[in-house]
């Protein structure tokens, strides 16, 4: 049964920790996918609060407006999977925070909004945390063009998205494309975590 295989993978994923830097459209949706897949521990960080605008594409609910995103997201993740351990940090991350919070994580997810912050975490992880896989999201603005969304890999960096579209006053980030890229990131995280996964033999198998 496919239920059992997904549960087996969930049990395997329980031993891993994933760090998520930013809890907006990418981070919140990626976290939800990882919680559903069965990842055991998440370290999440963001300084922002939930607003009416967050609800257009981020994993929050109307009754959470005004709350810190990290606290609201922790609640939502625990509603999905009560066994998950979530460490929530209400802070704007700098280089040293990234090393402190995420060095022990098995994989790190870049889910910032601003390009300068994206650069900062990519440089920090690739130069200060050797060997640590980092999954970034770049290019999610607008709608349609689903076929342009892809993932690219070099060294310890995986980049998901179309790599060209920029969120602006004219081209907003909307739920579907943001959600696709966030879930691509979660998919690439699983790809890293399941590298050494050996499926258990099926009962009555050959």
């Amino acid at each position: 049964m496919s239920f059992e295989k997904a549960a087996e993978i969930g049990r395997y994923l329980k031993k891993f920790t994933v760090g998520i830097a930013g809890c907006g459209g990418l981070g919140s949706n990626c976290a939800a996918a990882l919680a559903r897949a069965g990842v055991g521990r998440l370290v999440i960080a963001d300084f922002d609060i939930v607003t009416i605008h967050s609800l257009r594409r981020q994993y929050y609910f109307h009754d959470q407006i005004g709350r810190l995103k990290v606290h609201a997201l922790k609640d939502n993740l625990l509603r999905i999977n009560p066994e998950i351990i979530v460490k929530a940090f209400d802070m704007k991350l700098c280089t040293s925070d990234i090393v402190d919070l995420f060095s022990h994580c098995d994989v790190i997810v870049e889910a910032f909004d601003k390009p300068e912050m994206k650069y900062m975490i990519i440089e920090t992880v690739l130069t200060k945390i050797p060997g640590k896989p980092l999954v970034a999201g770049v290019g999610l603005a607008g709608w349609g063009n689903t076929n342009l969304l892809k993932s690219r890999e070099a060294g310890n960096l995986v980049v998901c998205g179309d790599g060209v579209s920029e969120v602006s006053d004219i081209v907003p980030a909307l739920a579907p494309r943001t959600g696709i890229v966030a879930n691509m990131q979660a998919n690439e995280v699983l790809n890293q975590l399941l590298k050494n996964y050996i499926p258990e033999e099926q009962e009555g198998g050959q």
Binding site: K118, G137, R152, G163, V164, S165, V167
Partner: peptide
């Protein structure tokens, strides 16, 4: 050589 170049854009 293998080169990957990515311009970072706003959106997250």
């Amino acid at each position: 050589d293998t080169v990957m170049a990515v311009n970072l854009f706003a959106g997250g």
